[in-house]
């Protein structure tokens, strides 16, 4: 068995940025094949996924069910496009399989199912991730394992009552083996965030969490925040990621913010060029 990553060591930020760029290339190619998709979300979360899967998370790509693994729980099931791209980079699946994304009978679904190797929960019904992550963190603590639980959820999910129930319990149970990555990309199904959820960081602090708020597309900031989140201080950790939808493709960064972005067929070549020229 080969465990990937040793979080105690210093990462190469340049290498992590290269991984993030590779994930973004996959995301563009996968969207292009089906002519649509959650492309702007995938581009925005690529940096965090690269830092998690290529530095912070201890797991075995050849055995995703390894009992002592750290867990990464993706609550926003529609971010699957970026998760599959990351899995291909990490060697959990073959890159060739990405061509099946969103097709009938593919296990690389538009929204995650936990029957696909490496997926911890079914993530499409928003508001489900954090509660299950709290349960997993309690479980690892009971097992006296030092495995940690990382959970991604979005700003939109902060409108679900269940997310606050789970935040309350994470703080109350003092789960310092739990790290929440809150992707604040400012959009939801109906467009820009439709009802006030700010100040996210202060609210999480008030619920008993250790909170950092960072540029979610800065690899240096993500790596530093993940390092700080290793503290064993009796508190769960939250990293508020301020991300830019479409990050790395300037045309998409500037496009009207929408949950499901329409792309014309003749735009994909340009997007590819923009990504290669971008400094992400």
């Amino acid at each position: 068995m080969t465990t990937r990553n040793s979080p105690g060591t210093d990462p190469s930020v340049a290498e992590l940025k290269a991984r993030a760029k590779a994930i973004r290339r996959h995301v563009l190619a996968m969207s292009r094949r089906i002519g649509q998709g959650y492309v702007v979300q995938g581009l925005a979360i690529a940096d965090a996924l690269a830092a998690i899967y290529f530095h912070e998370l201890r797991y075995d790509p050849a055995n995703p069910r390894w009992a002592e693994r750290d867990r990464f729980v993706l609550s926003t099931g529609h971010y699957s496009i970026a998760l599959w791209a990351t899995f291909a980079e990490a060697g959990i699946i073959l890159a060739a399989e990405l061509e099946t994304y969103g097709r009938d009978e593919s296990r690389l679904e538009m929204s995650t199912l936990d029957t696909t190797p490496g997926v911890e929960i079914i993530g499409g019904s928003l508001g489900h991730g954090l509660g299950q992550a709290v349960g997993m963190a309690l479980g690892q603590r009971l097992r006296k394992s030092d495995a940690r639980i990382f959970v991604e959820f979005s700003d939109g999910e902060l409108q679900e009552g269940s997310t606050w129930e789970a935040l309350m319990s994470g703080g109350s149970f003092g789960l310092d083996n739990l790290v929440a990555l809150i992707d604040c990309n400012g959009i939801q199904a109906d467009g820009k965030i439709v009802i006030d959820i700010e100040p996210v960081a202060d609210k999480c602090r008030a619920f008993g969490w250790d909170v950092q708020e960072i540029d979610g597309n800065s690899m240096d900031a993500i790596v530093a925040a993940l390092r700080a989140a290793r503290a064993k201080n009796g508190k769960p950790k939250a990293i508020v990621l301020r991300t830019l939808p479409g990050k790395g493709v300037p045309t998409l960064e500037k496009r009207e913010k929408a949950h499901f972005v329409r792309v014309e067929a003749n735009e994909w070549d340009q997007f590819d060029r923009e990504l290669e020229e971008s400094d992400v």
Binding site: I121, Q132, G135, L142, R143, E165
Partner: peptide, 28 residues
């Protein structure tokens, strides 16, 4: 007592936390 958790008046979280424990090898 070490294996009992009271999540308060939060039934969605009760089921979610139970599912998370189940996915960690416990019968919740």
């Amino acid at each position: 007592p070490d294996r009992f958790f009271n999540v308060g008046m939060a039934e969605q979280n009760l089921i979610g936390v139970s599912a998370g424990l189940a996915k960690s090898g416990f019968k919740a």
